[in-house]
Each structure stands twice: as C-alpha cells, then as structure tokens.
Write a protein that binds this DNA or RNA. Sequence first.
DNA 1: ACAAAAAAGTGTGATAGATACACTATCATT
DNA 2: AATGATAGTGTATCTATCACACTTTTTTGT
Lengths: 245, 245
Amino acid sequence: MEKQFHPNISVDCVIFGFDFKKLNVILVERNVHDPVNGAKQISDLTLTGNHVYFDEKLEDAAKRILFNLTGLSGIYLEQFFTTGDPERLKSVKDQVWLQKIGKDPRERVVSVCYFSLLNCDEITLKMGNRKIGWYSVKEAKNLAFDHGTILGNAIKALQTKLLYEPIGFEMLPEKFTLTQLQKLYEVVFDVEFDKRNFRKKVSKMNYLVPLDEKQKGVSHKPARYYTFSRELYEKNSSAMFNFSI
Amino acid sequence: MEKQFHPNISVDCVIFGFDFKKLNVILVERNVHDPVNGAKQISDLTLTGNHVYFDEKLEDAAKRILFNLTGLSGIYLEQFFTTGDPERLKSVKDQVWLQKIGKDPRERVVSVCYFSLLNCDEITLKMGNRKIGWYSVKEAKNLAFDHGTILGNAIKALQTKLLYEPIGFEMLPEKFTLTQLQKLYEVVFDVEFDKRNFRKKVSKMNYLVPLDEKQKGVSHKPARYYTFSRELYEKNSSAMFNFSI
DNA sequence: ACAAAAAAGTGTGATAGATACACTATCATT
DNA sequence: AATGATAGTGTATCTATCACACTTTTTTGT
C-alpha cells in the first residue's frame, strides 16, 4: 500500500545558508504556462515543503524534505512557527498552482514551519523538475503563498536563537576563521562589528578552539582556523552562551 | 447551518497568571468514571483548548477559547509551538476520553499552541460542567495528552519573550509596586534579585511611570504604585527593552 | 628581488553596566 | 509606646563595552 499524504497537514522548511558573504535561503521556482499560447501565468518562488504522511511525525517530515533535497541527515532543525488560516492558499495564483500539482485547492492546510542551517558550499541541491537554488534573503521578495511571512518569521527566530545558543557554527564549515564567524553574525543581524572588540568577546568562549592550521592559497596573510567544540560548550554550561549586540 | 469543527486542527492555550506569589496556569479537570461501579478511571488535568471551526483563523480560535473562559477580549496572546505527531493522543486514557467527549479517536490532530497572560485576580473562570482553576506551574505535573510538554515549551517561550519585550505587565494590574514587578520576574525565571540592584535597573526604564498613589490598608510602610506606559515605551523604541539576567 | 595589495592580528583608555552589601523610614497592630 | 512588616535608599568593586590605528604575513605582478 502506497503511503498517503495528509491533505491538511504540511511542513515547510526555511533552509538558511551562509556563503561567507551573505545569508541565503533555498527557494524553488514555481512556473505555470498558459496551455494555449505558452505565456507565463505564474513565475515566482516558494520555500521547500511538503505534506506529511499519515503516520509521519512533523519533525520526520521536515527531515525527509531536507534529505531529499540535500542527501544529508542530522541537519540542525528547529520548529518556529505555524501558519494555517483558512485563506492562506486562496489567491488565484495559488489555486491555479495547487490544481496543477494535483492538490485539492479547497482543503485547508496547516503548515508547521522549521528553519534549518547549512553551509552553502557543502551541498548540491536537487529536486525533480523544478529549479532550486540559493537566494540572498535580502532579495527574496514576492514569494508564493504566505511564504514571505514565513521567511520573515524565520529570520527573527534565527536571530533570537543565535543570541542564546551557539548555532551559528552550523552554517560554517568544520574549520573557520574568526573573520568568517564575525561576518556570519554581521549578516544575520545586519550590523557591523569592530574586529578587535569582536575578537575580545569570542576569546572568552573557550569552546572556540584555535587549530594549528592556517588558510592556504589566499593572497594575503593567512588566517588561523578555529573549530567549535560542542563537548567543551556543554561541559561549561554554566558559562552560558550570550551574544548580546 | 451549524458551524463545524475541523477534525484535524486544534488550538491549545497556556494561560499564565501571576498572583503576586507564584506563576500559575489555568487547567481543567478531566474525569471519567467507570459506568458500572462508578470508580474513577481517569482523573487528571488538561490545558484549555478546542478544535478550530472550518472557516476560523488559528488566532481567532485561541481568542474564542479565552473569551469563553474569561469573558475578556484583547488578552495578550502569542503562538509558540505546534504539536502534531501521529501518536500524541493514542494513550489508553486519551482514547477513552476522546470517545467520551464525542471525538473520533482515530483522527490525527495538530494542535497549534498559544500562551497568554492574565492577572489572576481580575477574572472569574467558567466552563460548562468541568472544574477549572488556577494551578501553580510548579505543581502542574502529569497532565493529560502531551500537555506537559506543551507547558514546558510555554514556560521557555515566556522566559525568552520576557527578556526582550515588556510583556510582564500583562500579568500585573494597571497599578503595581516595584516589589510586585520584581517578584514577577523572580518567579518566572526562578531566581532571586537584590532589591537595590533591581530598582537601579528598572529606574532606567522611563516608560515605568511612578504614580502619586500608595498602597492602602497594608500593615507596613505602603509602597508607591507604578504603571507601564506603552506609549512611552513605543516612543523610545531605540531604548530597547532588554532584561538580561 | 622588490614593491604593492590584501587581509590578519593585536592593546589601551574611557564609559557603562553588573554585583555585593546594610541600614533607616513608614505604616498597622497590639 | 513598642513591635512587626515591608519600603526605600548609596557606595565601592568589578566586568563588559566601546572607540580607535598600526604592524605582520602572505601572494601577485614587475
């Protein structure tokens, strides 16, 4: 027996990535062409999401979406918001689209939203026949459905979480430089920090471990690599992570 | 035509209240007696909640629940969590209960959870034939369904929110003393503050307005009343609320 | 080999916020 | 008039934050 999707329950994933320059999010193209003259009826972007199977946990559905997209498991995942008002899929465009992909456009769908964190460079994305890719969050405008609202909430949730917990490292490679770490905080909060003060601050975080290894092949003084030790972090749980800005 | 509940979508409300001594939450008794010998089969407590109507927004359902309970509208309300795993209502007790109240126990129900804030003393609670009342959050153990998890998440959400936004006042009367405000923060975070340092801190919040009015009928030096001015708070939005502890 | 370009890396002084700590003032009750 | 209860207040130390500029190390181009 084929697994069945629940018609009323879906999961959307806001997948953030950092490319050392800006904060990005994975979006998927949504295109509908007029069957007669071939003109574009809809051409915009959606978050990644899917309905849940009848016997599937919400978080497992989010993991499934992430795995199908990236081939990775164990990705950082956090539920942050749920949208489910009766009219959220009722715009003309959205109704046309739902028809096209074979969903009943009359159904009310509650979508439980998760954000997750990736290092942009470490993955290749794939998804059937729709184009998928990284987009700067600053340029991600006019999304389909209520996905603009979801993305806005996701960014706020990411900021709040980043103040209290050391999750920024999820968007960096295993080894990273302090400048990269600083840039990460700068793009998430849309501020700039003074280099010396930033380093003074993170130098108190003893779970940020300097390595005996430096950048190679850069045309300037190579920076030292650091790594995040979750073990050390959890040991000194008294030394709460607090990244007030 | 009678309004119909959506069988798969519900809302639960975690209603916090402060009685100047401890943090409380509204809970409802859930009793089932054996139809033959009258012995108690189930006797525990649930949060307040209900399914949403087909054409009802999630937040409107939460407002409806609050209004039916307290007769009040305009109560502070914040979505914080959604629970919807397939087995969340599948324990024997929960299945018996769902049968009793006329729900299909096989349906999967996603519950979108809101917390709201009240001043305990200002309301009288009512709800059909089930007993309802305030319970100390510290004593709220062994709740029905997955309501223990929901309550735990609600407390964390309340703490996080309370660090960033001036919502504590929602749990106080219009006029309150600084000692009452201090006690509120102490019970929510389960810490103790030094009186002088606490007052030094809040004295910088110019939206906390001292009144020309003091406590009456207390058998000790009467305390000055203060009030929270949302207007002043929003004017000086640059002076971000930040209650780091 | 040398100069230029690019980012890494480093210290100090000033200000603001956090912490620890103890006594006096004012009311009601007896 | 004395007691009990809570309100209300100041100072000294420590820690964190902020503003700010120059030297070091590497590659690249000549």
